[in-house]
Design a protein around this nucleic acid. Sequence first.
DNA 1: CTACAATTAGGAATCATTCTTATTTAAGAT
DNA 2: ATCTTAAATAAGAATGATTCCTAATTGTAG
Lengths: 145, 145
Amino acid sequence: MKKENLSNTHNDIKKLLKKHNLKMTPQRAAIYNEIVGSKEHPATVKIFKKVREVFPNISFDTVNRTLSTFVDIGLIKSVEYSGESRRFDPNTKKHHHFICVKCGRIIDFESREFDNLNIPEDIKKRYEVLEYKVTIEGICDRCKK
Amino acid sequence: MKKENLSNTHNDIKKLLKKHNLKMTPQRAAIYNEIVGSKEHPATVKIFKKVREVFPNISFDTVNRTLSTFVDIGLIKSVEYSGESRRFDPNTKKHHHFICVKCGRIIDFESREFDNLNIPEDIKKRYEVLEYKVTIEGICDRCKK
DNA sequence: CTACAATTAGGAATCATTCTTATTTAAGAT
DNA sequence: ATCTTAAATAAGAATGATTCCTAATTGTAG
């Protein structure tokens, strides 16, 4: 019997929510059930539509708010830095980014090592690789104070 | 005297635009002047406001459209995969992403090598690093056909 | 079981982006 | 220099994503 079977899931989230002084609600359970195991990195609308099938009255706001909550407590992750407005970079030379998770500041940096990584063979075989970069997330000097 | 002084800029863009059958306009020049040399990875609204100071009648649409054009011809880059809706990942284990630039599909992959990169010393010194990941951009198997 | 604080639904509001259309303009040809 | 025309622009409407507001509901501690 596997350690993490579905019957444990509910209690696991409940525990995690409790740790953050948050309540377990049927909506939260439904949203979690929808997203867990999903391999397709769904957008909020997609999750909303799916959850609506089993929870016809749930509002978009609830789904959206709940997803943010889940990200805050580390239950799921938000992919990349999407969701904000598009931002531009006049620097077209190869470089990498440090992004401050507090203020959103994006700082360029260069690294010989990062410029010369070996792309995994199975990726190169299956897909056409155009470019890659390393993105470091953290807290910038200004926000540390 | 530096090679790339400002007087060349105008002609350089003009040449690049021409290569793509696009016209040089004062709006495009103003937008480029605003973004070039900018270290802060500005969002569209910010660029719009700045350009408006010297070009009071320019529309937001023009700025936005022009920025997309600049990205298309490789004059600037769009940072990360922002601009779309937020997308979520229930996989909180360390992993990396391949993003298809055609369909936007995000594919997880794991790599021992990528998991153990050496973060540059000056980054570690100046900022608090929380995590990092490698993002590969390219064309996925479905879109290659 | 009760009370209270947290959570929810629903709709309005906000923000970013794109579309539509009429007008203007850049740039090659005369 | 002027003409021609395809491309680009301004302005506002439309769309899409997200967040805010408020009243009603619900989970949970006591």
